[in-house]
Computed example of a mutant assay.
Amino acid sequence: MAKKVLILSSSPRRGGNSDTLCDEFMRGAIESNHEVEKIFLKDKTVHYCTGCSTCSLYLKPCPQKDDA
């Protein structure tokens, strides 16, 4: 049964050792007929939590406008 695989590459540069390792893992997963998505975190904007409690107390989406 095929699985969905999510790879989060946190390498500071494309083609670095960690990114290459992610690519090799992805190649193996694809060869095993799994569905694979790779996200390069350096391309994303993610802000720190400010502790405003909007998500936990008021059960509303985070007010920060980022990719998280």
Rank of each mutant, 00 (worst) to 15 (best):
Met1Glu: 02
Ala2Val: 09
Ala2Met: 12
Ala2Cys: 05
Ala2Lys: 09
Lys3Gln: 13
Lys3Phe: 09
Lys3Tyr: 11
Lys3Ile: 04
Lys4Gly: 02
Lys4Asp: 09
Val5Cys: 04
Val5Tyr: 03
Val5Trp: 01
Val5Leu: 10
Val5Asn: 05
Val5Ser: 04
Leu6Met: 09
Ile7Gly: 01
Ile7Phe: 02
Ile7Thr: 03
Leu8Thr: 05
Ser9Val: 05
Ser9Trp: 00
Ser9Lys: 01
Ser9Met: 02
Ser9Asn: 08
Ser10Trp: 06
Ser11Tyr: 03
Arg13Phe: 01
Arg14Met: 02
Gly15Asn: 05
Gly15Glu: 03
Gly15Tyr: 00
Gly15Phe: 00
Asn17His: 07
Ser18Asp: 04
Ser18Met: 03
Asp19Gly: 04
Asp19Met: 03
Asp19Tyr: 01
Asp19Leu: 01
Asp19Phe: 01
Cys22Tyr: 00
Cys22Val: 11
Cys22Trp: 00
Cys22Arg: 00
Asp23Gly: 06
Asp23Lys: 06
Asp23Val: 02
Asp23Ser: 11
Glu24Trp: 12
Glu24Gln: 11
Glu24Arg: 11
Phe25Thr: 02
Phe25Val: 14
Met26Ala: 15
Met26Leu: 11
Met26Thr: 07
Arg27Glu: 14
Arg27His: 13
Arg27Tyr: 11
Arg27Ile: 12
Ala29Ser: 13
Ala29Asp: 03
Ala29Cys: 13
Ile30Gln: 14
Ile30Asn: 06
Ile30Trp: 01
Ile30Arg: 13
Ile30His: 05
Glu31Phe: 03
Ser32Pro: 06
Asn33Gly: 08
His34Tyr: 09
His34Asp: 15
His34Ser: 07
Glu35Arg: 08
Val36Gly: 04
Glu37Tyr: 07
Glu37Asn: 07
Glu37Trp: 04
Glu37Ser: 10
Lys38Arg: 15
Lys38Pro: 00
Lys38His: 03
Ile39Asn: 00
Ile39Glu: 01
Ile39Gly: 00
Ile39Tyr: 07
Phe40Thr: 05
Leu41Lys: 04
Leu41Asp: 04
Leu41Cys: 11
Lys42His: 09
Lys42Tyr: 08
Lys42Pro: 00
Asp43Leu: 08
Asp43Met: 09
Lys44Arg: 15
Lys44Ile: 07
Val46Gly: 08
His47Arg: 13
His47Trp: 02
His47Leu: 15
Tyr48Leu: 14
Tyr48Pro: 10
Tyr48Met: 12
Cys49Glu: 07
Thr50Ala: 08
Gly51Cys: 10
Gly51Gln: 07
Cys52Asn: 11
Ser53Pro: 00
Ser53Ile: 13
Ser53Gln: 15
Thr54Val: 14
Thr54Asn: 11
Ser56Asp: 04
Leu57Glu: 08
Tyr58Ile: 04
Tyr58Asn: 10
Tyr58Leu: 15
Leu59Phe: 10
Lys60Glu: 15
Lys60Val: 06
Lys60Phe: 03
Pro61Lys: 13
Pro61Tyr: 10
Cys62Lys: 12
Cys62His: 10
Cys62Pro: 05
Cys62Leu: 10
Pro63Gly: 12
Pro63Met: 10
Gln64Glu: 12
Gln64Leu: 15
Gln64Phe: 03
Lys65Phe: 02
Lys65Ala: 12
Asp66Ala: 12
Asp66Val: 13
Asp67Gly: 10
Asp67Thr: 12
Asp67Lys: 06
Asp67Ala: 13
Ala68Ile: 00
Ala68Trp: 02
Ala68Phe: 08
